[in-house]
């Protein structure tokens, strides 16, 4: 498998009140195409910062991040925005969507904005509907975002992240604001998307969610303390195995 994301000596430092806060310290890891990687760690360990930095949402202080062969540290803000729009997908804990647009319009919005997506407006609309059908939410296509449940909205966010057929999806606590049932449904969808070939990197606090991934990175104080490979492990035992490993890490 080719490497889609390669992170080398990544550092991120915030300066607050003249005090230097090293959130990420020389982080090194890589993600292969088609992988589904979970990032876990205690609160404040730098999980979300890692996700935002490697996806180009935030600037790194030092190090190198190669996404699909491109060094994102060298890209200008507009180039980074174009990269996020065309080659990456994002899912967040808070299901942010534009409140004045319908669910379907929110989903197709990145496609309409993308210059790289050469489909016609009609084809983009059809793709949006097709994604909604796949995720079982086509009935809410014309609804306002205020009229649907959190689980439905998060699935709509997944559709939006998929609309431009990204190479990789970054998800920050995608199930964090959902109940158990909705959480399971969302993870099932993400697993299906991953099975179809899309690489996923997600941040989570939930071992059940992380257990669905092929690999888990455990981060403490801005460093990757360890990683656990779940691929090939039995479905029924992988969650327990992961929990045991996490306990060893100090979870």
């Amino acid at each position: 498998m080719a490497i889609i994301l390669e992170v080398t000596d990544l550092c991120k430092t915030y300066i607050t009140n003249k005090r230097q806060n090293n959130v990420l310290r020389n982080v090194n890891f890589s993600v292969d195409e088609g992988e589904m990687v979970a990032v876990m760690g205690p609160s404040g360990s730098g999980k979300s910062t890692l996700l935002y930095t490697v996806s180009g949402m935030d600037r790194m202080t030092a190090g190198k991040v190669l996404f699909n062969g491109k060094d994102i540290s060298k890209l200008k803000p507009n180039e980074l925005a174009a990269l996020r729009l065309d080659e990456m997908g994002f899912i967040f804990q808070q299901m942010y969507m534009l409140k004045n647009l319908s669910v379907l319009d929110n989903i197709i919005l990145p496609a309409r904005q993308s210059k790289a997506n050469t489909l016609s407006a009609k084809e983009k609309l059809e793709r949006g509907k097709e994604l909604m059908r796949r995720l079982g939410i086509i009935e809410i296509a014309d609804n306002d975002i205020n009229e649907v449940s959190g689980g439905q909205l998060q699935r709509a966010c997944i559709c939006r992240s998929m609309i431009n057929a990204p190479k990789m999806i970054f998800a920050d606590e995608p199930t964090g604001a959902l109940n158990r049932q909705s959480s399971n449904e969302v993870m099932e969808e993400l697993c299906k998307i991953n099975a179809d070939g899309t690489t996923i990197m997600l941040v989570t606090h939930d071992a059940k969610v992380a257990a669905k991934c092929s690999r888990v990175l455990y981060i403490v104080d801005g460093n990757i303390q360890g990683e656990y490979n779940l691929s090939g492990k039995d479905e029924r035992t992988r969650e327990r195995a992961l929990n045991n490993w996490l306990m060893e890490q100090g979870w």
Binding site: M57, P77, N78, A81, A82, L83, R84, L85, D86, M88, F90, F92, Q94, Y96, M97, L98, K99, L109, P110, Q113, S114, R160, S161
Partner: peptide, 15 residues
Amino acid sequence: GEIAMLKAIGFKNRS
């Protein structure tokens, strides 16, 4: 929040 989201999904500042 909406502005942050638009930026996150790849909308440029000028848009």
